[in-house]
């Protein structure tokens, strides 16, 4: 979370479904899904590092 400002940090990542759990969910397709998810997450992290986006709205609309 340090990459984003104080108002911007998604400091928890629930549901990081890894390894055995992924395998149970996706079976023989696990590697394919994991590769796509990794590529997407990398994109997101890279964009956040570069652009330093801040949350809008500052206060969540829905708690």
């Amino acid at each position: 979370g340090a990459r984003l400002g104080t108002t911007a940090a998604p400091n928890e990542r629930p549901g990081a479904r890894r390894g055995a759990e992924m395998r149970k969910l996706y079976g023989v397709d696990t590697a394919k899904i994991q590769a796509m998810e990794a590529a997407l997450q990398l994109n997101f992290d890279r964009n956040c590092d570069r652009k330093l986006p801040k949350y809008w709205p500052v206060i969540p609309l829905r708690l």
């Binding site: 997407l40 997450q41 801040k54």
Partner: peptide, 23 residues
């Protein structure tokens, strides 16, 4: 992000103005 908790966007047009980079 893969758990779809946040969308990273640019040129966000809000009712009160434009925010260049936003989550």
């Amino acid at each position: 992000d893969i758990d779809v908790l946040n969308f990273q966007v640019s040129d966000l047009q809000t009712p009160i103005g434009v925010q260049t980079e936003a989550l």
